[in-house]
Simulated assay, not measured.
Amino acid sequence: MITLHALQYSRALRVSWLLADLGQPCNRVDYDRTADFHAPDSLSRVHPLGKSPVIEDEGEVIAESATILRYLAAKFDDTTHSPPPGSAAYWHHAALLDYVESSFAEVAAGGIMPAFRGDPVPQDASDAIDRHLAYLAQALGDGPLLFGDRAMLADIQFSYIIAMLDRVGLLKNHPRIAAYWDALQQQPGYIAAVDAAGPMAPPA
């Protein structure tokens, strides 16, 4: 059975979501955040960088959310969480899946971190977030999710950053993205993951 090392209020819920969708159990090892919202030192015994999520499967230790999601889809022969291979939609989906952490997350953090501390969001950070959320709104097309009404791997990958932006009030001027977040929260796998492990974002 897969072991999931899951930090509280973290990207680990992405993995729990996909496992729930796939009907696959896991041995979830939970880690509470420290008083300053950091990961505990104990996670460093799992991964040298103290990362979460991390999974262990058949002697392999695998980190990075997008890699874990792809690994699980391949392991369980899942074809329901990405468009048909070789199609234009397939490559668009692959780009969005990587975009979340390679480009979007750093921009979003520029607003999330000061807002989380109760500080004003710098104007340049706010402008950058607005540009990226406009890009995401365009990617949604007819919606409600990126490729219709069923969550793909990229939707699952987006969920954590969107949850954190919502948590600090940075979706107020982006009704299309707020509606996207509402639709994500209605997905059965998301509901099951939250029921089992708690919410993605910390309470206000």
Results as ranks from 00 to 15, higher is better:
residue 3 T to S: 00
residue 4 L to T: 04
residue 5 H to R: 10
residue 5 H to C: 02
residue 6 A to C: 05
residue 10 S to G: 08
residue 10 S to K: 12
residue 16 S to V: 07
residue 16 S to Q: 13
residue 16 S to R: 14
residue 17 W to E: 12
residue 22 L to K: 14
residue 23 G to F: 12
residue 23 G to V: 03
residue 23 G to I: 02
residue 25 P to I: 05
residue 27 N to W: 05
residue 27 N to M: 07
residue 27 N to A: 13
residue 27 N to E: 13
residue 31 Y to S: 08
residue 38 H to P: 00
residue 38 H to N: 14
residue 42 S to V: 00
residue 45 R to A: 15
residue 47 H to A: 03
residue 48 P to M: 02
residue 50 G to Q: 14
residue 50 G to W: 11
residue 50 G to R: 13
residue 51 K to P: 08
residue 52 S to I: 13
residue 53 P to Y: 07
residue 53 P to R: 05
residue 57 D to A: 01
residue 58 E to L: 05
residue 61 V to N: 00
residue 62 I to C: 01
residue 63 A to G: 06
residue 63 A to E: 09
residue 64 E to W: 10
residue 65 S to Y: 10
residue 66 A to F: 07
residue 66 A to T: 12
residue 69 L to C: 13
residue 71 Y to L: 01
residue 72 L to R: 09
residue 72 L to G: 08
residue 74 A to E: 12
residue 77 D to Q: 09
residue 78 D to C: 10
residue 81 H to R: 09
residue 81 H to Y: 05
residue 82 S to Y: 13
residue 84 P to K: 03
residue 85 P to I: 10
residue 85 P to Y: 07
residue 86 G to P: 01
residue 87 S to R: 11
residue 87 S to L: 03
residue 87 S to M: 07
residue 89 A to G: 08
residue 89 A to P: 04
residue 90 Y to A: 10
residue 92 H to W: 08
residue 95 A to F: 04
residue 96 L to C: 09
residue 97 L to V: 05
residue 98 D to N: 10
residue 101 E to F: 13
residue 102 S to V: 02
residue 102 S to T: 13
residue 103 S to C: 08
residue 104 F to S: 08
residue 104 F to R: 06
residue 106 E to S: 15
residue 108 A to G: 11
residue 109 A to R: 12
residue 109 A to N: 13
residue 109 A to G: 04
residue 111 G to L: 12
residue 114 P to I: 15
residue 116 F to A: 15
residue 116 F to E: 15
residue 117 R to T: 13
residue 118 G to C: 01
residue 118 G to V: 01
residue 119 D to Y: 06
residue 120 P to S: 08
residue 122 P to K: 02
residue 126 S to G: 06
residue 126 S to L: 09
residue 126 S to Q: 13
residue 127 D to C: 01
residue 131 R to N: 11
residue 131 R to C: 04
residue 132 H to P: 00
residue 132 H to L: 04
residue 135 Y to Q: 12
residue 136 L to D: 05
residue 137 A to C: 06
residue 138 Q to G: 15
residue 139 A to E: 15
residue 142 D to I: 01
residue 143 G to P: 08
residue 145 L to E: 09
residue 145 L to T: 09
residue 147 F to N: 01
residue 148 G to R: 06
residue 153 L to Y: 12
residue 154 A to N: 08
residue 155 D to R: 07
residue 155 D to H: 13
residue 158 F to G: 02
residue 159 S to M: 11
residue 160 Y to D: 02
residue 162 I to Y: 08
residue 165 L to D: 09
residue 165 L to K: 06
residue 166 D to A: 14
residue 173 N to D: 14
residue 173 N to S: 10
residue 175 P to K: 11
residue 180 Y to I: 01
residue 185 Q to Y: 10
residue 185 Q to K: 14
residue 185 Q to E: 11
residue 187 Q to S: 07
residue 187 Q to K: 11
residue 190 Y to P: 05
residue 190 Y to D: 02
residue 190 Y to R: 07
residue 193 A to S: 12
residue 194 V to E: 10
residue 197 A to D: 06
residue 200 M to T: 07
residue 200 M to D: 10
residue 201 A to M: 05
residue 201 A to P: 06
residue 202 P to I: 04
residue 203 P to V: 04
